[in-house]
Amino acid sequence: MSVISSKTLFHFTNSAEKIINILKNGFAPRFCLEQLGYDLFFDTDNKKETAVPMTCFCDLPLSMVDKHLEFYGSYGIGLSKKWGKKHGLTPLNYIHENSTQLNYLKQLVKFITKFDEEIKHLPTEEDPYFALFELAGFYKPYTGQMWRINKYVEKRFYDEREWRYVPLLSTDDGSDYRLSKEEFLNEIKRASANDSLAKNFPLTFQCEDVKYIIVKKESEMIALFDALDLMTENFTENEIKILKTKIVSTEQILQDF
């Protein structure tokens, strides 16, 4: 019986180096430019983009990841959905301009902020609209534009069946809680903010959580074996042996799944 969801959550990337870093240090959340966010708080037709901290996964079986591999890269790691739920990962809500959910959210915002003409500051944990502000990070347009490698590309986001980890950052001083589009496009500012995320909010896992490690070519498997052998500070000898059995290649996936 064919399925459209998996018991595994996959994260794909475009380099072997990033997979090695993930195996050694866990996932490092990064700021990503989103069309939604602040937009929920203002009754406007303009899409005010905001960079939200996150790590993204897709809930797709290997038989359906070919386009994902083509777009995001031929390297990846798959972890159990049980692990994802334990760490607060959750599937996104996909909406469009006439979605009932969006209208309800805007009604709630108007009610909560009825004593303010407009929101002039970042919400803090004590503000009643803090939860709504955080909730915005789990909504995404059904279709839209995505900032990818220094340009916008059209995407039907709904096809990605995205699950997302959004770390809960402090809002005490507002620094790097969210980045404006201008801050995000500033490479130094973005790099500094991402470095802080990586140090303070890593998303970690254990050997038993790993279901797949994906490399681009079968010829790269031996090199990954050697890399795993050096990770004695991260895994036991037996765990390293087990991880080696989880390795598959994009070549195999495209041919056999």
Score class of each variant (00 low, 15 high):
residue 150 N to V: 07
residue 156 R to V: 06
residue 210 V to R: 04
residue 255 Q to T: 11
residue 211 K to S: 04
residue 13 T to D: 04
residue 101 Q to Y: 08
residue 82 K to W: 06
residue 1 M to L: 08
residue 243 L to C: 02
residue 157 F to W: 06
residue 251 E to I: 02
residue 198 A to Y: 15
residue 54 M to E: 04
residue 152 Y to C: 08
residue 174 G to W: 08
residue 171 T to P: 14
residue 57 F to I: 00
residue 123 P to G: 01
residue 51 A to Q: 14
residue 29 P to M: 01
residue 219 S to A: 12
residue 162 E to C: 05
residue 171 T to R: 15
residue 18 K to E: 04
residue 109 V to N: 10
residue 155 K to D: 01
residue 122 L to G: 12
residue 129 Y to C: 14
residue 80 S to T: 15
residue 229 D to A: 08
residue 186 N to T: 07
residue 189 K to F: 12
residue 172 D to N: 09
residue 25 N to R: 13
residue 233 E to W: 02
residue 132 L to K: 07
residue 19 I to M: 03
residue 99 S to C: 07
residue 46 N to P: 07
residue 244 K to D: 04
residue 63 S to T: 14
residue 145 Q to Y: 07
residue 216 K to D: 12
residue 167 P to D: 07
residue 227 A to W: 00
residue 80 S to L: 06
residue 33 L to F: 10
residue 11 H to T: 00
residue 147 W to Q: 00
residue 144 G to L: 02
residue 9 L to A: 00
residue 96 H to T: 06
residue 125 E to T: 08
residue 199 K to T: 13
residue 37 G to Q: 13
residue 164 R to P: 10
residue 152 Y to V: 04
residue 99 S to A: 14
residue 28 A to L: 05
residue 16 A to F: 05
residue 166 V to R: 13
residue 151 K to D: 03
residue 31 F to D: 09
residue 240 I to M: 05
residue 178 R to V: 15
residue 211 K to A: 09
residue 133 F to A: 05
residue 14 N to T: 07
residue 183 E to T: 02
residue 161 R to V: 00
residue 125 E to D: 11
residue 27 F to V: 09
residue 69 L to D: 08
residue 17 E to G: 03
residue 3 V to L: 03
residue 176 D to Y: 11
residue 1 M to D: 05
residue 190 R to I: 11
residue 97 E to M: 04
residue 255 Q to D: 11
residue 5 S to I: 03
residue 191 A to L: 06
residue 216 K to G: 03
residue 43 D to E: 15
residue 100 T to A: 12
residue 200 N to I: 00
residue 38 Y to G: 14
residue 92 L to E: 01
residue 217 K to W: 13
residue 30 R to F: 09
residue 234 N to D: 15
residue 54 M to R: 01
residue 69 L to A: 04
residue 136 A to E: 00
residue 46 N to K: 13
residue 119 I to P: 11
residue 13 T to L: 03
residue 90 T to H: 01
residue 202 P to R: 00
residue 192 S to Q: 12
residue 70 E to D: 06
residue 170 S to G: 11
residue 195 D to W: 06
residue 174 G to S: 10
residue 90 T to R: 06
residue 122 L to Q: 11
residue 254 L to G: 02
residue 50 T to K: 09
residue 162 E to H: 02
residue 5 S to M: 02
residue 231 M to D: 03
residue 28 A to S: 15
residue 137 G to K: 05
residue 98 N to T: 15
residue 49 E to V: 09
residue 88 G to T: 01
residue 244 K to L: 05
residue 238 N to P: 10
residue 125 E to V: 14
residue 147 W to H: 02
residue 237 E to L: 14
residue 174 G to V: 09
residue 226 D to Y: 13
residue 180 S to A: 07
residue 122 L to A: 06
residue 138 F to Y: 13
residue 104 Y to V: 13
residue 128 P to H: 15
residue 220 E to H: 03
residue 30 R to M: 11
residue 145 Q to C: 05
residue 127 D to S: 14
residue 128 P to K: 15
residue 89 L to T: 08
residue 44 T to P: 10
residue 65 V to Q: 08
residue 151 K to L: 00
